[in-house]
Simulated assay, not measured.
Amino acid sequence: MRGAELCARATRQMTAAGVPDAGRDARRLLAHVLKVPAGRLTLFLPEDVAADLEGAFNVLVERRCERVPVSHLIGRRMFYGREFLVTPEVLDPRPETETLIEAALAGPFERVLDLGTGSGCILLTLLAERDGCVGLGVDLSPEALHVAFWNRNALGLDGRAAFEVGSWYDPLAGQSERYDLIVSNPPYIALNEMADLSPEVRDYEPRLALTDEADGLTAYRLIVAGAPAHLEDGGRILVEIGPTQGAAVSAMMVTSGFTQVSVIPDLDGRDRVVSGKIHAK
Rank of each mutant, 00 (worst) to 15 (best):
V134W: 03
V134H: 14
A161G: 08
A161Y: 07
R111K: 15
H146K: 15
A148Q: 11
G120D: 07
G156S: 08
A144F: 02
G159Q: 13
G137C: 10
L157F: 04
L172E: 05
V134N: 09
A128L: 07
L145N: 04
E143R: 15
L172N: 09
R160E: 02
L127A: 08
Y169A: 10
L123A: 09
A161I: 09
G174C: 06
T125R: 09
C133H: 01
G118W: 00
D158P: 00
L124K: 13
G132H: 07
S141F: 02
S167F: 06
L115C: 06
A148L: 06
H146A: 15
D170K: 13
E129C: 13
E143A: 15
E143G: 01
C133D: 03
L115P: 07
G166H: 11
R111D: 14
P171K: 13
D139P: 11
V112P: 08
D170W: 04
L127H: 06
G120T: 11
A161C: 07
A162E: 15
L145W: 05
G132Y: 05
S141A: 11
L126R: 13
W150M: 10
L136M: 13
L127S: 08
R160Q: 13
V165M: 05
R160Y: 02
S141V: 10
D170N: 03
T117W: 08
A173D: 10
F149Y: 13
A161K: 10
A128P: 01
S119R: 11
E143Y: 01
R160T: 05
E143V: 02
S119F: 04
G174W: 04
L115D: 03
L172M: 09
L115Q: 10
G135E: 07
L172S: 09
G120W: 04
R160M: 01
R160N: 03
D139Q: 11
L140G: 04
A173M: 03
R130L: 04
L126E: 12
L157D: 00
E110P: 00
S141Y: 04
L127T: 12
Y169C: 10
D131N: 05
L157I: 03
Y169T: 12
V147E: 01
C133W: 00
G159W: 02
G118L: 09
N151M: 09
